[in-house]
């Protein structure tokens, strides 16, 4: 991983009142790297992810995407920088009143100011990439959870982000639908996308992640290759967590 850093989290802190959720987190993600974040619930991993595009406002610290600090600048700067940071949510959050195609073209038209023809073409491309082009005219309510999540991924990809953040992308899915979403994510990785994934799919992490980060109590306890973390965790807390999730 000699690549330049695409996403840098610098001494990120997040407090809610007197409750400190994130304690001076530092994390660098290189271009094309897939960083997989694990940890018990309440460890702050989702909060960290949501701080990366300021859906959650950091209390202090910096978030640097491809050399630009998203903590600096105006509200409008933030909107334009969010275009470079794709995000996929546990609950998909497709727009239920729009067709799949319009879900994928909306931000292209309004935020990137692409023409309708450009946006449509790009949307169809992305929908093909996630295997959903045949449902372009359907409404989200007519799709399965796995299909909705793949459309949500296409919606983000259509904006040509530099980093993709996945916040428990398969946790709301029926087990038989998880595979289709993970496959799309694996394709994305092989195409060189920089990705940060918060998830419990340890099998996927073993197979696809470049690096696994274990968080607990608002700090990064340990990080390393999947072999290191899953095979020979150094910290006691990591061992305890892994033995719990592997049953």
């Amino acid at each position: 991983m000699a690549n330049r850093p695409m996403l840098e989290i610098v001494s990120l802190e997040k407090r809610f009142g007197t409750n400190t959720i994130l304690k001076k987190i530092d994390l660098k993600v290189a271009e094309g790297e897939l960083v997989f974040v694990i940890g018990p619930s309440g460890s702050g991993k989702s909060t960290m992810l949501r701080c990366c595009n300021r859906l959650e406002e950091p209390t202090s610290g910096d978030i640097i995407v491809d050399g630009r600090n998203i903590m600096a600048g105006t509200r409008r700067d933030l909107d334009s920088m969010r275009l470079q940071i794709g995000m996929v949510f546990q609950g998909f959050h497709l727009y239920p009143h729009m067709t799949v195609l319009r879900n994928v073209t909306l931000a292209q038209r309004k935020a990137l100011k692409r023409t309708k023809a450009e946006a449509d073409a790009r949307a169809i491309d992305m929908l093909e990439q996630v295997g959903m082009a045949h449902k372009a005219d359907a409404y989200p309510g007519e799709l399965s959870g796995g299909q909705q999540q793949r459309v949500a991924i296409a919606r983000s990809l259509a904006l040509d982000p530099k980093v993709m953040l996945f916040d428990e992308p398969t946790s709301a899915l029926d087990p038989e639908l998880v595979g289709s979403v993970l496959k799309v994510m694996k394709d994305l990785k092989s195409k060189g996308m920089t990705m940060v994934v918060v998830s419990h799919e340890m099998g996927f992490a073993r197979e696809t992640a470049d690096r696994v980060v274990f968080m607990d109590g608002g700090v990064v306890v340990e990080q390393g290759t999947p072999e290191e973390i899953f095979g020979a965790p150094k910290a006691e807390r990591t061992r305890a967590f892994l033995s719990r999730v592997s049953g």
């Binding site: 859906l55 909107d79 969010r82 794709g86 949510f89 909306l106 931000a107 935020a111 983000s156």
Partner: peptide, 10 residues
Amino acid sequence: WEAAQSTGLS
């Protein structure tokens, strides 16, 4: 709100 704003909509 979150999904829309994460895609750069104001």
